[in-house]
Amino acid sequence: MEPNAAFDEYERSAVAAISAAATAEQLEAARVEFLGKKQGRLKDLQKLLGQVAAEERRVIGQRFNEVKTKVESLLSSRQKELDRPKRVIAGIDITLPGRTPKIGVLHPITQTIEEFKDIMGRFGFTAVEGPEIEDEQHNFTALNIPAEHPARDPLDNFYIAAAGVSSGGPVLLRSQTSTVQIRTMERTPPPIRIVSLGRVYRPDTQDDTHSCMFHQMEGLMVDRDVTMAQLKTVLALFAKAYLGEDVKVRFRPSFFPFTEPSVEVDMLWGETWIEVGGAGMVDPNVLRAVGYDPEAVTGFAFGLGVERFCMRRHEVRNIRLFYENDARFLRQF
Rank of each mutant, 00 (worst) to 15 (best):
T184H: 14
Q62S: 12
R84A: 15
A142Y: 14
P253I: 12
L243G: 05
C212I: 12
Q51I: 13
R252V: 13
Y159G: 07
P203N: 09
I145T: 13
F34N: 04
P154G: 09
M120Y: 13
G91R: 02
R320L: 03
V195L: 12
V32P: 00
F7D: 10
S77P: 02
Y159E: 07
R122I: 06
A30G: 11
A17T: 12
L143M: 13
R152Q: 00
Q79S: 13
V88W: 07
F140V: 11
R41F: 02
G291A: 11
P97I: 11
E186P: 01
F309W: 05
L45R: 03
L75G: 10
M1E: 06
V128M: 14
V247I: 15
L197S: 13
K102S: 09
T184Q: 14
P261N: 06
H138L: 10
Y323H: 12
N4P: 00
L173R: 10
T112Y: 05
D93K: 03
G121D: 03
E115W: 07
L45V: 05
A279V: 06
L45N: 04
P189A: 11
V234S: 01
I119A: 14
A21D: 08
G164Q: 08
F300G: 02
G130H: 03
P294Q: 05
E186I: 10
